[in-house]
Amino acid sequence: MMTSSKAISLLRLLVVLIGASLMLGIYSTSFESFGTQLKEFFTTDFLAETGASNSVAAIYLNYRVYDTLFEALMLMVSVIEVINVSWYKERRAYSFVTPRIQLHQYSEIIIQMVSFVYPYVLLIGLYVMVNGHVSPGGGFQGGAILATALISRYLVNPNFDLKIDGFERTEKILFVFILLTPISYLFLQWPPVTAVLSDGAYMILMNTLIGLKVFSGLSIIFYRFVYYEAQE
């Protein structure tokens, strides 16, 4: 492996410093000021218009829901790409003895502490997901926290006995529902069937769908990477 000499790495550092100071200097001495029309449009009266106390949730679920649809599509495409790149063959060992569970050398401290914390992580993830329109959080953050719970399960028990097919199917079905809900509720403005389907219920439904989709997607990505690495 070739390593660059000390002079070249010093030159690299110098170029980085010069570039960073140039950008910061231009930014801090520029006196062109933009108005704050967009900020005022988004942050005045979002509670009455959208029914969300969290302005970020109001933006990504109501004002800019088009971007959310494409973000969900992008996540699904990246999951498809990870599945495509990391194909693996199931190793079937022909043996008369049933294989033992893999004993690993992970420390006992980690196992006990993670097992203790595991249900609370699930609870926090669900809370952040469902309460996304009122407190900071939302679908994406809740889904990521739920994926962290699944990853900690891998840390404690590194046996690959989870079937990924359920996750893959769930993600595709959820994507269809994520597409259907804003199109029918916001774009076409179909009148709701009962008065229960208000803005708040729409937010909770969208947050839950996005959270579960992100959870499935991140779990698939993680398990594919880890399983592919385990094949020597």
């Binding site: 900071p136 959080g137 939302g138 990521a144 994926a147 990477f225 880890v226």
Partner: peptide, 22 residues
């Protein structure tokens, strides 16, 4: 706070464990 929550969940939970496994 939303961005901070996302950074904590992804940067510490997912990304670090992936690097450690790799």
């Amino acid at each position: 706070p939303d961005v901070a929550l996302a950074e904590v969940a992804i940067g510490l939970g997912l990304s670090t464990v992936l690097y450690l496994v790799g």
